[in-house]
């Protein structure tokens, strides 16, 4: 059993949980994820590692409650326990192994959308701790869904945007990036974009045009997360990859996003039925697509 030691609500339906899992905390690196099973009957839910504290033995996750399992999670409070918490999974971000002096010469921009801010945070923090100055673009649908602004502002130069213009730049993250490059004379050697598949797709279309190499972090449907089932397969550069063990980070310019988006919808019908089965009281259908 894994104890929830802290819980913070960041925005409507978005919450952060700090979980006591010393072994995971000790090995965790930026770019990796964990899998949670809420209880005996729960499914295995993959979630990115947002932060870790090796001394405390804790790992933080940020969850957006959208489907039945993440909603079930939302009811959990500090002091409660989850049945399973396994990780860290996936390959750490490539830069963690790169030559530091080389890395310092690079101009890097992070682009985060929605809950994608969570996985970007440990990466930007890592950069900050290693003395690398980075730009960060965060986008959300509206002001109240914009999360981790304060933490982010401490580790990089922040550029905010909202789709409805309620805060920061009025537009999408792609508009901000285009503005920075075209109007403000910024040049980037590397972009790291994490968010909903559809956002990553459009960032990649733009960065390809701008000639900026781009890493994305994919969030396909997973079961085991250890390379055993192939549910998470994605096509990258014409080859089939298992996102849980070969990724989750890939060269965004090689990813077949249309296929990935299609595959993500695979259990939509079943999930809805399941949700109605259990929670028909709140009646509404929740179409996913957010990260």
């Amino acid at each position: 059993m894994y104890k929830i030691v802290e819980r913070n609500d960041l925005a409507p339906n978005i919450f952060l949980m700090k979980i006591l899992a010393p072994r995971v905390a000790k090995s965790a690196q930026p770019g990796q994820f964990i899998i949670i099973r809420i209880d005996e009957k729960g499914e295995r839910i993959p979630l990115t590692i947002c932060d870790y504290d090796r001394e405390e033995g804790t790992v933080s996750i940020v969850v957006q409650a959208l489907g039945s399992s993440t909603k079930k999670m939302e009811a959990y409070q500090a002091g409660d326990y989850f049945a399973d918490f396994v990780g860290p999974l996936g390959v750490p971000s490539e830069f963690t192994k790169a030559d530091l002096s080389e890395l310092k010469k690079k101009k890097i921009v992070f682009i985060a959308g929605g809950v994608g801010v969570a996985p970007v945070y440990p990466q930007a923090k890592w950069m900050h701790e290693h003395g690398i100055d980075v730009d960060i673009i965060i986008g959300a649908r509206t002001k109240e869904l914009l999360i981790l602004e304060e933490q982010m502002s401490k580790v990089g130069n922040l550029h905010l945007s909202t789709d409805d213009g309620s805060y920061g730049y009025h537009g999408r993250v792609t508009d901000v990036l285009e503005d920075l490059v075209k109007n403000q004379g910024k040049q980037y050697d590397q972009a790291i974009a994490i968010g909903p598949m559809i956002m990553m797709k459009f960032v990649c279309i733009l960065t390809k045009k701008l000639g900026i190499p781009t890493v994305v972090s994919l969030n396909p449907i997973m079961v085991d997360g250890t390379g055993m089932c192939g549910a998470c397969r994605v096509t990258v550069g014409g080859e089939t990859k298992f996102a849980c063990v070969d990724g989750p980070e890939f060269d965004g310019h090689l990813v077949d996003f249309d296929e990935a988006i299609q595959r993500q919808a695979q259990y939509k019908k079943e999930e809805h039925e399941h949700e109605h089965h259990h929670h028909h009281k709140n009646g509404k259908c929740h179409i996913r697509g957010e990260y």
């Binding site: 079961v223 055993m228 089932c229």
Partner: peptide
């Protein structure tokens, strides 16, 4: 092979 509805036996059985 990556169409929706194609599974490995491992996924299906797991």
């Amino acid at each position: 092979e990556n169409y929706n509805g194609v599974f490995s036996a491992n996924e299906f059985l797991t």
